[in-house]
Amino acid sequence: MIGRMLVAALLVATWSLPAAAQLTPDAEKALYEAAKAEGSVNWYVAHYSTEIAERYGRAFTEKYPGVKVNVVRATSGVVFQRVVQELRSGPPQADVLASADISHYLELKRRGQLETYRPANSATLIEPMRRIDPDDQYHAVSFGLVVLMRRTDKVKAEDAPKAWTDLHDPRWRNQIALSHPSFSGSVTTWTAALNKAYGWSFFEKLEKNKPQIGRSLLDTNAMLKAGERTVGMALLQAAAQDQDKGEPIAPIYPTDGGVVIAGSMAIVKGAPHPNAAKLFMEYLQGEAFDRLQSQDFFEPMHEGVPSRTGLVLKNTKLLIISPEELLKAAPEVKDKWRDTFGN
């Protein structure tokens, strides 16, 4: 859904303007008072690193003193597991769930375990990010891409793989860093997208180069930084951040398409801090947060917020997998992964 709308929007290449006004100061004040009474919001988050998530949480508390953000950072699978466990066992601890694995939201929605809330600020988003769920149960929070990356001191730009299929070249034997679809939602999406694009033989060929397989998508950056591997898959944002910090890492936009990872969020049904959760969700869809986030190399979700990656999306090929497709493909690709890669 988000994918298709996004593609449509990208092809048209003009964002339509915000349709409605943002959160009014009065509504904001009322929500803030209610949130302050609750004191904190538990944020289960997968698609930011701990550092970034904590920073965003602190920024929120700076804007709304008295409402603390408890960041629980883990991979999307783990985060989802915990939420499901909590929901099975009565009142949940989680308020806001944020991860890149859209199938989790569909699953929770199917079970009726998400709170319906339409953030007033969603109206300020660019069209494809606005109301990605017509039922207002989950919402867009970030726009990420899975791309290639290289270790700059060991692989020259001209030698680097240009497309996903270049990874089949035997010279990348023992040099490739991947992550595991069973431990990372983004990797599940990536696996499903490449399976859709090339069929499973893509992975069988990839396996011949003996990639090292980590758990979260951030593991691959660690492998490159350690010098363990020289090329790999990466979250564009993470690779760009590392490059920005002066690490010898550079993202490569694959010519056959980056995989779109839509970061989503939702309020868990029966959340202990419902008002704080709503306020937090408003904040995450606000323009101020978008500026903050785009500084970390996420693509902006508001018109007028500049992109830091310099990607011009409308000219870029994207590999997109719809939530429904993903939900259907996920168990199958995870299973095949284990057959092919042996774990």
Partner: peptide
């Protein structure tokens, strides 16, 4: 374990 997942060795 979370740190290790994020590669923050």
């Amino acid at each position: 374990l979370d740190f290790s997942e994020e590669g923050k060795l």
